[in-house]
Design a protein around this nucleic acid. Structure first.
Lengths: 236, 236
DNA sequence: CGCAAACTTGATGTTGCTCAAGCTAGGTGG
DNA sequence: CCACCTAGCTTGAGCAACATCAAGTTTGCG
């Protein structure tokens, strides 16, 4: 089975539709314990490991996780960060394809796989909803491939910051960055040092501000977008 | 809408199950023309372009296509190669997320999107089958991210050759490579020159043979696999 | 306040890119 | 049939972006 991140937000559901049951409200609060149970994970704790048997489906109620794969010598690539509202859909194979680890304090709702699969047949439109979500995940993956394979360090960091800003949405300027520089590096195919240097470079050029490492503010969104798209010179 | 490649082979169907209709045989031969039509494309011809409206679903009957995305300055990343038996599933958004171009002579079966969506509701188990296929695509995409973000040139080329060998399956040694060096480069996040140098290096070390550029033979599969996984020194 | 972990900055090194020639193969026309 | 021509492939020399190695500096927590 295989870990797929599916965002409820992606399929454009209202808050009350978040649950797989539609109108029943937050699944964590309303589902029979037979098919669901609530879990908490502290930062750094592991939810599941690449290669192990996958028998559950998780919905993230609160917090952020990193999903990653390792090469034998320890090189790591973070395939994605997932947060509130996403499903970790352990797809119809039996092995986890990535490792999932809590970045922040995380609350999640665990469904037994068999029961979850049952819902696909029972609940009308649920399969289609998952299909839409899967398609969106694939779209995101394609963009990430372009980033990893063809963008410069500055373009990578700019793209990432804009993506984070978009999905936080709340304020236009400030981004809360819960993950470490090392996580960013392993997500963008760079090193910690290059992340740090690139952020400093963006700051020096007035595109962003860094009051504290964990808080990044976007000062010139237009130029950052131009940079992210690859539309201008991007050398440190 | 968004181009997703779904392989029938991936969902483990027998030849007679290849069609979306299950037992009705090859869709190209048996579906009512109202919802399907047969098309041919010559090498280099475009099936659809990133950003354009997507109103069809295609099944590849024969041949190979490349799917790619471009940056404004022309940098290209090929997200994948798809061939016989795969669906180009233009997912439930309205815009193609990649461009699809024929590499070889291609025959494909085109379904009207609306009719295809209808099948998801009508044909029992069809949605689940697509879901499985989508999950597999996502799995492949994750592996490709690791390749693009964390592997060396030699590891990238070795991984690619093994993947090609696996999906051709027929012979254990020889791989027919229908795509150009330039296509390989844009799929692996390298340049043509690096592809060429790396292949020469693999040949010099006795891992492969190159009787003609279009034919690559695997001589030492074990060492190639060790290299692809990142388990040994990989310097030219 | 002190300590460890995370982050930043600098100096140096290496992989893979760029630029520039040759080489090879396949197709065309004389 | 062969010479030519072009597109694709290979090889070489030099270079640039990013990695590595090595200090410092800040941050956050006990």
């Amino acid at each position: 089975m295989y870990a797929r991140a599916i965002s409820n937000a992606d399929v454009k559901m209202t808050p009350t539709e978040l649950s797989v049951y539609g109108d029943l409200g937050r699944p964590a609060a309303s589902l029979p314990m037979a098919i669901s149970s609530l879990q908490r994970k502290a930062p750094g704790e592991t939810l599941f490991v690449e290669g192990e048997a996958a028998d559950s489906v998780y919905e993230i109620v609160h917090g952020m996780l990193r999903l990653y794969k390792l090469l034998p010598d320890g090189r790591r690539l973070i395939t994605g960060f997932v947060s509130t509202g996403h499903f970790l859909d352990l797809a119809p194979e039996d092995i986890c394809t990535v490792t999932a680890e809590a970045i922040t304090e995380v609350t999640l709702c665990r469904y037994k796989r068999a029961a979850f699969e049952h819902l696909i047949d029972e609940v009308p439109g649920f399969a289609k909803r998952l299909l839409t979500a899967a398609a969106h995940e694939l779209h995101v993956a394609q963009d990430q491939m372009v980033l990893l394979g063809r963008k410069t360090a500055a373009e990578k960091v700019a793209s990432f910051l804009l993506l984070m800003a978009d999905q936080q949405g709340d304020e236009l300027r400030a981004i809360q960055v819960p993950m470490s520089r090392s996580d960013m590096a392993d997500h963008l195919g760079l090193t910690v040092e290059t992340i740090s240097r690139t952020l400093s470079w963006l700051k020096r050029r007035g595109l962003i501000a860094l009051p504290v490492p964990v808080r990044i503010e976007i000062c010139d969104r237009d130029r950052l977008e131009e940079l992210a798209a690859g539309g201008c010179e991007a050398r440190l």
